[in-house]
Amino acid sequence: MNLTVRNIAESCSEQDVREFLTRELGHYAKHVEVVDAGKPSAYATVELEASVPYVGDVIARQIHGKHLGGQPLEASADLFSDEPPPEQRAP
């Protein structure tokens, strides 16, 4: 499961973002990747160590709105996984 974090301040370095997310997410942060650090389009993806789908949504709500570099972060969890969809039964 992945978490996407947007609205990262241009003043934040890749290391700043990585350290902040690792500290905030603790053992849930399996891998943090920061893209375009120092640019207006900067964002981060976090591979979460969680096997239950709703955990990603809960974590996203905890990170969403926290401030980093003077800006509130926007966070959302992936709604999709690599698992096949459940079988649908005919009515």
Rank of each mutant, 00 (worst) to 15 (best):
A75D: 09
E49P: 00
H64T: 01
V46Y: 01
K66L: 15
A90E: 10
Y43L: 15
G70N: 05
K66Q: 14
A29Y: 01
S13L: 04
I8S: 05
F20L: 01
G69K: 03
T4S: 12
V35M: 15
Q15C: 09
A60M: 05
G69M: 07
D57M: 09
A90F: 13
H67S: 14
V32W: 07
E24N: 11
A44T: 07
L25H: 03
G69D: 05
E19M: 07
P72A: 14
A50Q: 09
V17T: 06
Q15F: 01
E74P: 00
E14Q: 11
A9I: 07
S11E: 12
G70S: 03
R89F: 13
A37E: 13
V58R: 03
L21Q: 04
I59T: 01
A37I: 01
V46K: 03
E24G: 02
G56D: 12
A77Q: 05
N7T: 09
T4D: 09
R18A: 09
V17E: 05
P40R: 04
S51V: 08
L3T: 02
E47I: 06
L73D: 08
A44W: 10
E14G: 15
V46R: 10
P84N: 07
V34G: 03
N2Y: 11
V17A: 08
L25Y: 00
A50D: 12
D78W: 02
S76P: 00
V5P: 08
L73W: 04
V5H: 02
L25V: 10
G70W: 00
